[in-house]
Amino acid sequence: MYIHNLSKENSILNSFISEIRDVTKQKGGMRFRRNIERIGEVLGYELSKTLNFQTKTITTPLGLCEMDVYNNEVVLCSILRAGIPLHNGLLNYFDTAENAFISAYRHHKENPESFEIIVEYLACPDLNNKTLILADPMLATGQSMIATFEALQSFGTPESLHLISVIGSQEGVDFVASKFPESTHLWIGAIDKTLNAKGYIVPGLGDAGDLSFGEKLQK
């Protein structure tokens, strides 16, 4: 797997990530969602540099102009509900992309420190020979990414695969690297060292879904 950790270079991205981590700034849902969206835009821009480009002749009001534009058929797939702001940021840049959505969530059994990933709702176009961008803001254990990719298998085989995350744990990154095809690209804003006993990234930022949309009742 090709791992693109954008925190290794200084950029405005670090400012957005610092705000979503900061307990004094992350409490306003709209600001938190907008920062996730902006992070998606930055990650999407960096990803776009690896796409296929072809030269097209563009007619302007004053003449003709040759431009190199990407020609990949892109499908954006996000994991509900936390992935919605990240999806919107990517869609701002890949505005002609097809879209897929999947619900993958942690189901805690009797032991609150153990869980399984449950996949329920799934809507997806044909993936054959397309560029699949799979987005999940928090790459903690990596199990949600794996479960989502497995659920998408019946929709076809993409030509190329990109994973997008805002923050990940080293353990989660290592896990998906061992499970996804070697040609997969991971674009990530920051990689933290550890997970706690409940499988949350430390220092991380907390629950991205709750911070975006409010706390949920556990069933």
Rank of each mutant, 00 (worst) to 15 (best):
E150Y: 03
E159Y: 12
S154W: 04
S165R: 04
A147T: 07
V166M: 06
L139T: 10
A140N: 01
M138Y: 08
T141F: 09
S169C: 12
G156E: 14
E159P: 04
F155S: 06
S169L: 00
I164V: 15
T141M: 06
Q170F: 05
I133M: 08
L163V: 05
Q153F: 06
D136R: 03
G142C: 01
I133N: 03
I133H: 00
E171L: 14
S160R: 15
L152D: 02
F149R: 13
Q153H: 15
E171Y: 12
L132C: 09
M145V: 06
S160E: 13
I133Y: 10
I167T: 07
M138D: 04
I164S: 00
A147G: 01
K130G: 10
L134P: 00
F149H: 15
K130I: 11
V166F: 08
L134G: 03
E171T: 13
F155Q: 10
A135T: 10
L139V: 08
M138F: 09
Q153M: 11
Q170G: 08
K130E: 08
T131E: 05
I133A: 03
E150K: 15
T157N: 14
G156I: 13
A140T: 02
G142H: 11
E150V: 11
A151Q: 11
F155R: 12
I146N: 05
D136Q: 11
M145E: 00
L152H: 11
T131K: 08
M145K: 01
